[in-house]
Write a protein that binds this DNA or RNA. Structure first.
Lengths: 341, 341
DNA sequence: AAGCATTGTGCAATCGTTTGCGCAAAAATA
DNA sequence: TATTTTTGCGCAAACGATTGCACAATGCTT
C-alpha cells in the first residue's frame, strides 16, 4: 500500500547501504547468504518492487522489445504477436507494440518512438509501402538488434525469420497439377518488391515448369489480394476465351473473392474449378467448400522470432552475425482443390 | 550516427547548461525564441533523441500504457488492441502488451511486470479464471489508473468500457421471435461470474418474457462456447423429444459448431432452424448460410478505452471518479436467422 | 532616477539503481 | 606468526533528464 518502497528505504531499515540491497536482490555472489535472506525478507515485507525505469537508466537495458506490425488485427500478425509474447513473457521481457498501417512514414516514426523508449531491440514486418531500407541499416549501425519477419529484406544485413513462401507456393501448385489441372491461374500481390510475393510467384512458376505445365501470362492477375481483388481476378479470367481450370490464389481473401464469383456464376468448386489459397486464415476451414491453403504457422513463427531475438541480444559478441531462418509452410488440403470431384 | 547525443553534449556545444537545453526542447516559455531555435538546430544536427527512460525516471511518467488481454490472437482482442493503438500512437503514448491466457496467476504477474516497468496505467480485460478482484482494488489504492473493458467487474470501483451485451442479446432473441420462432434455445458460457455471459443470458430471458415466449430450461446449454461446445449443445437439444426451432448462441464459434451438426443431420438452416451468433467474428460473413450475429465494434471499443484512459490520466484531479461507458451492440442480420426461408 | 516586474538562464538537487573500486575483517596459506 | 587470499560490504559516481529556486539583466512605471 502507501507509497512505494525503494532500495534506499530498505537500506535504512537494515542499516546497510543501497548497494548491498541492490546486490542482495540480484544475488550477487559477494553478498552473504544471511544478508540476502534479511534483505529479501525486508523487501517482501515492505512490498518492494524494482523500479525498472531507474534500473534501465543505469544499466542501459530495459528488457523491453519493440514490435512493429502492419496491423495488429490481422489474424496472421496477431498470431505472431501471440507467439512472441509466449516466449518473452517467460523470460522477463516486455513487449512494446506499434502498428505501421503499412505506411513507411509510420514505420519510421514507430522506430523512433521505440528508440526513445530505449527498447533493447526491435522486431518488425516491413510495411507494404516501404521500399527503401536505409532506416534498417541505420539501426544496425547504431547497434540496435533487429529481427525482421515475414516481410523482410536481405539488403540491410539484418536477421530474418520467414516462412518458406517459395516451397509453399510450389507445393500448392504441384498439388493442383496432381489433381489434374492444366490451366492454372494465379493471383499475385502488387508490391512485388516484397519478398513474400516474389517468392510465391517464383514457386508457382517453377512448379509449372518442373511439371511441364504451360505458363500463360493471361492467367496472372495482380491485385491487392483482398476479396475484391479475387473477384476482379476471377471476372477477368472468365472473360477469356479459355478460362483456367484452377487458381492458385496467393492469399486466402482473394481465394474467397474468386469463390464467391464462381459460385454466383454457377460453377462448381472443385468440380469445375480448383482453388487454393494462402495463409490458412481461420475462415478457410469453415467456408464451403473448405479452402485448401498454405499454413504459415504464425504462432511458431512468432516464437521463433522471439527466440532468435533473445539469442542475438544475450550473445556477448556484438558481432553482426546475422541469421536467416526459414520455417516450413505446409499445404493444408481441404475440399476446394480436389478438382473434378 | 556513432553514439547517442545527450542534452549535456548539446549544452557543451552551445555553451549553455543542460537545463536550458531541456527547457528549450520542451518549449518552456522562459526560454527565448532565439535560444530555442539554436538548440533545436543543434539537436537535429547531432541526431539528438530524448532518452525516455531518463525522462521517465525524473518526471515519473513513462507515457506507456499497459494492456493485458486474455489472448492476443483472438479476433476480438486483437481488434481492441488495434483500436487502442490507433489512439495512443497519435498522442505519444506507447503500448506494452501482455497476455493472461485467461489465468488469474498470469494476470497478476502481468500486472506486476507492468508496474515494474512503471507504466502510467493499465487497461485490461479480466481473465476467465479471475473471480477475486483484490488486485484491482490494490491498483486503485496505489493510484494506478485502471480501465477495464469487455470482461469487467463493478466491484472494484474502477472505470469500465463494455458493450451492451444485454441489449445485444435482447435484440438477437427478439429478432428470432420476430422471425416466428417460438422454441428458442440458447448456448451460454460457463464462468457465469463474468459479466458478459450473465448479461447475455439476462437479455435472452427478458426478451422471451417480454414477448411471452416460453422459457424452457432444457433449452439452455452451458459450455465453453467453442465449436465443440456448440456441437454438444445441438446434439443435446436434438435428443429432446421436441427440439428447438432456433438457437441464440452466445458466441459465433458455438453457432458454427451447431451449424455443422445440424447440416450433418440434414436440417436446413434457416428453413428448419434459425441460428444467431455473437461477436461478428470474421468468418461469420463467409460461411453458408452467413451467420446472423451481434457486432461489438471492437475497434471502436479499443478507441473508446484509449480515450477514456487518456482522459483519466490527463485530468488533474486524481479524484477516484470512475466512469462506466457502455457501447452499442448491433445485430447484423444475415441468412442464418431468416427462419422458414 | 528609483523601484518594481519581467525575461532568460544557471545551479544543483533529484529520480532509484547499478557498479568499479577500495578496504577492513576473516580465512587460508606458508 | 606473518603473509596472502577471500569474503562482505561501503563509497561515490554514474545514467540523462527535469525542475524549484536564485539571480542578473533588461524593461516598465511613476
Amino acid at each position: 500500500m502507501s507509497k512505494k518502497a525503494t532500495i534506499n528505504d530498505l537500506a535504512k531499515e537494515l542499516n546497510v547501504t543501497a548497494s548491498t540491497i541492490s546486490r542482495a536482490l540480484n544475488d550477487n555472489p559477494r553478498i552473504s547468504d544471511e544478508t540476502k535472506r534479511l534483505v529479501k525478507e525486508a523487501a517482501k515485507r515492505a512490498g518492494y518492487r524494482l523500479n525498472g525505469v531507474a534500473s534501465a537508466l543505469r544499466s542501459g537495458r530495459t528488457y523491453t522489445i519493440g514490435v512493429i506490425v502492419p496491423t495488429a488485427d490481422r489474424s496472421f500478425f496477431s498470431s505472431i504477436v501471440r507467439g512472441i509474447e509466449d516466449i518473452t513473457n517467460k523470460t522477463g521481457y516486455n513487449l512494446m507494440i506499434c502498428q505501421s498501417n503499412d505506411s513507411n512514414k509510420s514505420e519510421i516514426e514507430d522506430i523512433n518512438a521505440l528508440l526513445r523508449a530505449q527498447v533493447d531491440g526491435i522486431v518488425l514486418s516491413i510495411a507494404k509501402e516501404t521500399s527503401d531500407y536505409k532506416h534498417f541499416e541505420d539501426l544496425r549501425e547504431r547497434g540496435v538488434p533487429l529481427v525482421l519477419f515475414d516481410r523482410v529484406t536481405h539488403k540491410a544485413g539484418v536477421s530474418t525469420v520467414t516462412v518458406d513462401d517459395y516451397r509453399g507456393a510450389y507445393k500448392a501448385t504441384e498439388h493442383l497439377i496432381e489433381q489434374g489441372c492444366r490451366r492454372i491461374a494465379t493471383f499475385v500481390g502488387e508490391h512485388q518488391h516484397i519478398n513474400i510475393y516474389k517468392e510465391r510467384f517464383r514457386g508457382y512458376k517453377d512448379a509449372l515448369a518442373d511439371y511441364k505445365v504451360p505458363f500463360y501470362s493471361e492467367y496472372v492477375h495482380t491485385s491487392s489480394l483482398g476479396i475484391d481483388g479475387g473477384r476482379e481476378g476471377a471476372t477477368t479470367m472468365w472473360a477469356l476465351p479459355q478460362p483456367p481450370d484452377a487458381i492458385f490464389c496467393q492469399s486466402d481473401f482473394s481465394a474467397l473473392g474468386a469463390m464467391q464469383f464462381l459460385k454466383e456464376k454457377g460453377l462448381k468448386i472443385p468440380h469445375d474449378v480448383a482453388l487454393v489459397g494462402f495463409a490458412n486464415e481461420p475462415f478457410t476451414a469453415y467456408i464451403e467448400p473448405a479452402l485448401t491453403t498454405v499454413d504459415q504457422h504464425p504462432v511458431d513463427m512468432g516464437q521463433t522470432v522471439a527466440k532468435l531475438f533473445l539469442e542475438q541480444i544475450e550473445s556477448e559478441d556484438t558481432s553482426t552475425l546475422t541469421k536467416n531462418i526459414t520455417l516450413n509452410a505446409d499445404l493444408v488440403i481441404r475440399q476446394s482443390s480436389l478438382f473434378g470431384r
